[in-house]
């Protein structure tokens, strides 16, 4: 039982670490988009289709992805 708990704890820590890494990757893209001047075209790829969006829409999209993964 003690061994199982230790294993589960380790697995939980690993998932938490991966989640943090993924959030960092999303945040890097958000920060990059924020650094762009206004008027730049931005696209989101969904199922092979590239949709032109505003910078703000792209940022909100990425933030929603972070929230989905944190939920």
């Amino acid at each position: 039982m003690q061994k199982l708990n230790k294993h589960l704890k380790k697995k939980k820590q690993k998932r938490k670490k991966m989640k943090k890494k993924l959030n960092n990757e999303f945040q890097e893209v958000i920060d990059f988009l924020k650094s762009l001047p206004e008027g730049r075209r931005v696209y989101i790829e969904m199922s092979g289709i590239w949709i032109e969006v505003t910078k703000e829409e792209a940022i909100n999209y990425l933030k929603s992805k972070i929230n989905e993964k944190e939920a």
Binding site: E25, F26, E28, V29, F32, L33, L36, R40, R41, V42, Y43, I44, E45, M46, W50, A58, Y61, L62, K65
Partner: peptide, 13 residues
């Protein structure tokens, strides 16, 4: 140039 910047996002640079 439109460049892929990650997480299915591309931006005009």
């Amino acid at each position: 140039v439109v460049v892929s910047v990650g997480q299915n996002i591309s931006a005009e640079l």
